[in-house]
Simulated assay, not measured.
Amino acid sequence: MSRKMFDLCGRDERLRFSPYCWRVKYALAHKGLDCDFIPWKFTDKDAIAFSGQSKVPVLVDGDTTVTDSYEIFRYLDRVYPERPLLGGDVAEARARFFKFYAERSLAPGVMRTILMDVFNAVHPEDRDYFRTSREKAFGRTLEEMHSPSQGLSMLDRALEPMRGRLDEAPFLEGDAAGASDYLVIGVFLWARVCSAADLVSNADPVYAWYHRMLDLHGGLGRNATRLVDIDGGYGG
């Protein structure tokens, strides 16, 4: 197979929890494109040095290497125009909004809710790196940042725009899922793989959307291996 993607893994290679990598998995499935997902750890910088940077996802498609989840969306539309992800200027502007909405409004609340679960999920060889890099960015310890009650409150407020849209349509894109949905679902898959936390109630329109997204593309998200599936579960 000529197409492969370096994909963040945890303490078990089956644990794939990067929200950015999940975006691309949904985009590839949307296009009907096969891909070999290569397990990668935070400290495996040498393995992706050829890409000129140090983060995943890294998509290698034949002789072409593409980094950054959103740039991969754009690349896939250029090279594989069937079933477009972004479409025209208006559709891409909408997708850009949801990209930033997921990263800047949803992710902070989710992070505060599941941070120590993520720490338990990362590979043992990555834990020093994860702790050091995150604590430097946060300006406080992981334990101080981990606050599920505060995180869920933040997330509840941040979900209001999604609730409004999902009262109108089954997906953020309308009657069928598209780029906006894929850009957002990555945050929820991050939590699903690493944590048992319930982010939304089953009466919330976001909950129904979330389960539609899990079942999409042959159960792509629902079939993902979770930390609870691994021996030791959430105990770390």
Rank of each mutant, 00 (worst) to 15 (best):
1 M>Y: 02
3 R>K: 07
3 R>T: 15
3 R>N: 01
6 F>S: 08
7 D>W: 07
8 L>E: 11
9 C>Q: 09
13 E>D: 15
14 R>E: 04
17 F>T: 12
18 S>Q: 08
19 P>T: 09
19 P>Q: 09
20 Y>L: 12
23 R>H: 07
26 Y>W: 06
29 A>K: 11
30 H>C: 02
38 I>S: 01
39 P>H: 03
39 P>Q: 04
41 K>A: 09
44 D>Q: 11
47 A>R: 14
47 A>M: 13
49 A>M: 01
49 A>G: 03
50 F>P: 09
50 F>Q: 08
52 G>C: 08
54 S>E: 10
57 P>N: 07
59 L>W: 05
59 L>P: 11
61 D>T: 02
61 D>G: 09
62 G>Y: 09
63 D>C: 03
63 D>F: 01
70 Y>L: 14
71 E>L: 13
71 E>T: 11
72 I>G: 04
72 I>V: 13
76 L>H: 02
77 D>N: 06
83 R>E: 03
84 P>E: 06
86 L>I: 05
88 G>S: 00
90 V>Y: 03
90 V>E: 14
95 A>C: 09
97 F>Q: 02
97 F>N: 01
100 F>L: 15
100 F>V: 03
106 L>I: 15
106 L>V: 14
108 P>M: 06
109 G>Y: 01
109 G>N: 00
109 G>I: 02
111 M>I: 09
112 R>D: 02
116 M>S: 08
118 V>L: 06
120 N>C: 13
121 A>L: 14
123 H>I: 04
123 H>G: 02
124 P>I: 09
125 E>I: 04
127 R>Y: 04
127 R>P: 00
127 R>Q: 11
129 Y>S: 08
135 E>I: 14
136 K>R: 15
138 F>E: 04
138 F>A: 10
143 E>F: 03
143 E>R: 14
144 E>V: 13
149 S>D: 15
149 S>V: 15
149 S>I: 13
151 G>S: 01
151 G>N: 00
153 S>F: 05
155 L>E: 06
158 A>L: 07
160 E>I: 12
160 E>F: 07
161 P>C: 11
162 M>C: 05
163 R>S: 10
165 R>K: 13
165 R>C: 12
166 L>Y: 05
168 E>M: 15
170 P>H: 03
171 F>I: 08
172 L>F: 03
172 L>V: 05
172 L>Y: 07
175 D>N: 12
179 A>E: 00
185 I>E: 01
187 V>D: 13
188 F>R: 07
190 W>P: 01
192 R>L: 08
192 R>I: 00
195 S>G: 04
196 A>P: 15
198 D>F: 03
199 L>S: 00
199 L>D: 08
202 N>F: 05
203 A>C: 13
204 D>L: 04
204 D>S: 10
204 D>Y: 02
205 P>V: 11
208 A>N: 02
212 R>I: 01
215 D>L: 06
216 L>M: 10
219 G>Y: 10
220 L>I: 05
223 N>A: 11
224 A>I: 10
226 R>P: 14
228 V>D: 15
228 V>T: 15
229 D>P: 12
229 D>F: 04
230 I>E: 00
230 I>K: 05
231 D>E: 13
231 D>R: 09
232 G>C: 11
232 G>T: 10
234 Y>T: 11
234 Y>V: 08
235 G>R: 13
236 G>V: 10
